[in-house]
Design a protein around this nucleic acid. Structure first.
Lengths: 249, 249
DNA sequence: GTACATAGTTGACATGGATCAAATCGGACG
DNA sequence: CGTCCGATTTGATCCATGTCAACTATGTAC
């Protein structure tokens, strides 16, 4: 894929927020062009994690939150008896670690689902900055609010909806998140394994698998492994009966 | 209960945060004595809601978050098809409305479970203030983080735990929240109906009822209506297998 | 290319909790 | 004090989904 010329192109490690393609999704969204430098001063850009590597885990002392630059991340809580509960999937432009501010350690474990590049925002400095930039502060509050809402949405899905509804909702959520990044909302490849989907949605892997094939037989989706094509979005919305797409902004 | 002399005692409507008995739980917790006045300047204290009244609902334009001063509040999301999902219960000292910052309208509906007194913090002014008081800003971030964690905890409960485990966990959570307020952790009265418990925990009312009587037969609790006595907290912890009580602070 | 490991699919069966139905309790109100 | 209506409890039955088991596909290492 990437040709041999390894460092020439990739090396502008100090690639600025100014020219980041995600600046309309990420924190810069809330910042005046002039003040963007101040954000760049505190961000550590471009750390790379390979598939399966931990960005942090529950024993890591809390320091920073992370923006996904490329790739994707799964967060989960590991209980003392070793069970895992996946709490979220994070795609480029999204912020990980908002659930741990003010805690000694991270409240969850974050693992790269594929080769993933992140930008790190040391929270101490970020708080300092948000104290000076009201817009940015407001944006942080807003992001955290949304995180709460998302989680409530998930709780709702888990407690009230059938397996089909849950999976339809997840597919739609992913779809709209791809779309936000100007990628195809109907043709994408799932960054996570069936196992993670199952765990996230509170289902058994087998059930996830069955629902996928059922959807496929009904002509609603086409799936081969992680490659997915949504053939009939309306049908999916009908199934998930979650037109409530307040997720967007 | 409260004798006839209605307004004499109750009237210091401008009762200050300074002398509020909850100042060690609520926002004042994060503020220097000197700066407390500035919080008092923006708070509207002492609004009272009767049981069943809405503090706000999903059609209310977002303005403020609310601290419970006495009584208790239930928040829920009402879907377009009329279903309700209870997202939380809020007791004195706790903050309601953190899930809606930056949204046009409140993301949920808040209803008083009993006669309830709240303090209102207009968010616009509160943001202004947190911009000036780093400690307060940090505390807000922390509170919101915890709200996310709580919600993840709930999601976990809903997706992985049995009816008994869920109910044990709820009882323990209530217990420790009463304890924080220097009230008995073993003897309290539930502010919410069985129905609300069921909805919150993703169960049918009947199941909740059955589990209560089962616990009672096992001698773990004693319950008559909403009056509850926890006879064997350890057993409850055993059942809920959620020693992870990171909920505190 | 072969082999092993991991991920995904499919089938058969068991069960926790939902649902339906009915009885009882409790509290507000005249 | 009796009535009425909602809240709670209890019982009987059913079903969506979990669990167990076996098979298949995919990918990685040698």
């Amino acid at each position: 894929m990437a040709q041999a010329i390894p460092f020439r192109q990739a090396s502008p490690l100090k690639a600025s927020c100014h020219q980041c393609s995600l600046s309309n999704l990420c924190l810069p969204l809330a910042i005046e062009e002039n003040d963007l430098d101040r954000l760049e001063d505190i961000v550590q850009q471009g750390r790379i994690f390979n598939r399966g590597e931990h960005i942090f885990d529950q024993s890591t002392p809390y320091r920073s939150c992370f923006a996904v630059k490329s790739g994707s991340i799964k967060t989960s809580i590991i209980t003392e008896n070793g069970e895992e509960q996946v709490t979220g999937f994070f795609m480029p432009g999204e912020l990980v670690g908002l659930d741990s501010i003010g805690s000694e350690h991270y409240a969850c474990t974050a693992k790269a689902l594929e080769r993933t590049r992140v930008c790190e925002f040391p929270m101490e400095k970020l708080e300092e900055l948000t104290g000076k930039l009201p817009e940015l502060q407001h944006h942080m509050y807003h992001l955290m609010s949304q995180e709460i809402q998302n989680s409530h949405q998930l709780a709702m899905l888990l407690s009230k909806n059938t397996a089909e509804e849950r999976i339809a909702a997840l597919l739609l959520s992913l779809s709209s998140r791809f779309q936000r990044r100007r990628m195809s909302p109907t043709n994408f490849s799932l960054p996570m394994a069936r196992n993670d989907i199952a765990n996230f949605l509170g289902l058994a892997v087998e059930t996830v698998s069955r629902v996928f094939t059922r959807f496929q037989n009904q002509g609603i989706i086409k799936a081969r492994g992680r490659e997915v094509e949504l053939l009939d979005i309306e049908a999916l919305q009908m199934v998930s009966r979650e037109f409530s797409r307040q997720c967007n902004n």
